[in-house]
Design a protein around this nucleic acid. Structure first.
Lengths: 144, 144
DNA sequence: TTATATGCAAAAGATTTGCAATATA
DNA sequence: TATATTGCAAATCTTTTGCATATAA
């Protein structure tokens, strides 16, 4: 989703367009389908609009998440990562544990489980499928 | 893995067997393949050995994780959950977002991706596949 | 006996919140 | 102008750490 569309979405939900919001959204869109940490988002946003404050970043991430415009994951190390929700196809990721390089996997194993979960009387709402490892570069640099 | 085996494993790695450790491991084993939060683990451990301290719980969870005896996940809400690593088959979970009820899925979608990741020059090391939703009970209680 | 483990309290790090000031519509 | 938004600082929550004391082997 483009910056313009995201701002429209906020506006149509009654939110005002502030410089801070614009800077946050600009950074998010520039990251496309990649995950970004709160700290990086904060630092990058400040480069665009220097007054952006950390509380503002958190508050806006919450708004965007509630509007289903961004997606949050927490790494095992406790780092919160956000990414824009893709408007194209549903997909998952391979994530490099060293450099964070993220590649899209255009396949989702969920369909096989819709039946299974019915058998278990489970209503599925979310799922997570992520592959972790090392990209070619990092694999070769790993021990250096 | 049984409590006895876990204690053996600690002992053979040079760790001493303390009452605190026993209480923590007893709770973990009683939870089998289910996830338990640090707070619950702490509270349950205290019921068995009242002197167990929160720092001790954290320190022992770290030891057990390093020995590859337990597995940690972080929920989107930032809650750390631990479970004993099953010595039986590799599997994944369906987790109820309301009551935490966890059921085992004895299928893993990873094999389909081993080839794919090679094409992408990615060395796979870990993966995560979790289904979230509501179990039958919670589905019906959700809005109450 | 001696190294490991623990308890306690303080520190650290991430996130949230109250409130007064500010900016958008 | 009225209401939503922000900045700041303090509060909160989880986890970690230093150090003196206790305990398993």
């Amino acid at each position: 989703m483009s910056m313009k569309e995201l701002l429209e979405s906020l506006k149509s939900n009654g939110y005002k367009i502030t410089e801070q919001r614009k800077s946050i959204i600009q950074v998010l869109t520039s990251y496309n389908n990649k995950f970004i940490s709160v700290e990086t988002l904060f630092n990058e946003s400040k480069k665009i609009y220097s007054k952006t404050n950390m509380s503002t970043v958190y508050r806006n991430l919450e708004i965007l998440e509630n509007l289903n415009l961004i997606h949050k994951i927490l790494t095992k190390e406790g780092i919160s990562l956000y990414q824009l929700i893709s408007t194209t196809t549903h997909h998952h990721h391979i994530i490099c544990k060293r450099c964070g390089k993220t590649e899209v996997i255009d396949f989702c194993p969920i369909s096989s489980f819709e039946k299974l979960s019915k058998n278990k009387n489970f209503t599925l709402t979310d799922h997570k499928f992520e592959l972790y490892g090392y990209c070619f570069n990092c694999e070769n640099l790993k021990d250096s």
